[in-house]
Design a protein around this nucleic acid. Structure first.
Length: 257
DNA sequence: AGAACCGCCTGCTTGC
DNA sequence: TGCAAGCAGGCGGTTC
């Protein structure tokens, strides 16, 4: 599923591919996205990421906001032929961008362009002081907090598991029990792991692909997520799987305290 | 107010 | 082999 590194990968590819190009048409295949029929030929002036949202800014002072949720993908095709599970298409002079999304969770909307960065994005504008004041004392499990987009934008299940594993912190700890030093460790590893995910062009668990249909490489480097029953790369213990908030958490009970 | 839970969806895996 | 049930989960909304 697309998380911060996957969305960043798409944004970089889109920036190169469609920036400066005019939208020629918009075709909606899924009635849930009917509001996108109204798109008219603006020119793309920037493609940026805010958390996990893809922001395509147009020269008419509006922005297209795309959130891929679980199974959404963006696919470039020279041909306008509709791929399986595609829900929406925008056409440029040299090709098309399709929103492909089997489970139809992805959302798209058009809004007036906003310039200020109000998103708590770890890599582009994280307010650590504010986080420590408003989030760090919460009683929810630390893993739930890492996945809360109002607390930190961009971290999903896979990277939350990886970050806590590397930091040696149990996902079951309540956020309020972490020391300042432990938070520093979490932030440090979080940035490092997310940057590595971007370098590897994302984690191709299930059906993630980049704009050109290529897999990422990060799935080969996962140390916790999906590693149930395997030995821990840090201590040799056994990675186990539990449920938190209805989702799978993978961690090593031996070295994550 | 904050924590926990629900609903949206459908392809894939599992079990009989 | 075929079918049904179970599972996957980001995040906004609702309930406790």
């Amino acid at each position: 599923m697309p998380e911060l590194p996957e969305v960043e990968t798409l944004c970089r590819q889109l920036q190169r591919k469609i920036c400066g190009h005019k939208i020629l048409s918009s075709k909606v295949y899924d009635d849930k996205l009917a509001n996108m029929k109204k798109i008219r030929g603006g020119k793309v002036i920037a493609v940026e990421r805010k958390g996990k949202t893809i922001v395509i800014s147009l020269d008419d002072d509006s922005s297209i906001l795309i959130h891929l949720r679980m199974t959404g993908r963006l696919l470039w095709q020279d041909s306008p032929a509709r791929p399986k599970h595609s829900r929406w298409r925008i056409t440029f002079n040299d090709g098309n961008v399709f929103l492909v999304d089997p489970r139809r969770f992805a959302t798209v909307k058009v809004e007036k362009t906003v310039t200020e960065k109000t998103v708590n994005d770890l890599l582009t504008g994280f307010d650590e002081k504010k986080f420590m004041e408003t989030q760090a004392r919460r009683k929810v499990n630390v893993k739930i907090l890492l996945m809360d987009p109002k607390a930190i934008a961009g971290i999903g299940n896979i990277y939350a598991c990886e970050i806590l594993h590397k930091a040696g912190i149990s996902p079951l700890r309540r956020a309020s029990t972490l020391s300042v030093k432990e938070w520093k460790t979490v932030f440090s590893y979080a940035k490092r792991i997310l940057k590595k995910g971007i370098e590897k062009r994302g984690t191709s668990i299930s059906d993630w692909r980049d704009l050109y249909g290529c897999q990422g490489e990060n799935q080969h480097d996962l140390k916790a997520y999906g590693q149930e029953g395997k030995s821990c790369s840090i201590c040799g213990g056994t990675i186990c799987r539990i449920k938190q908030g209805g989702r799978s958490t993978f961690y090593c009970p031996n070295c994550q305290k």
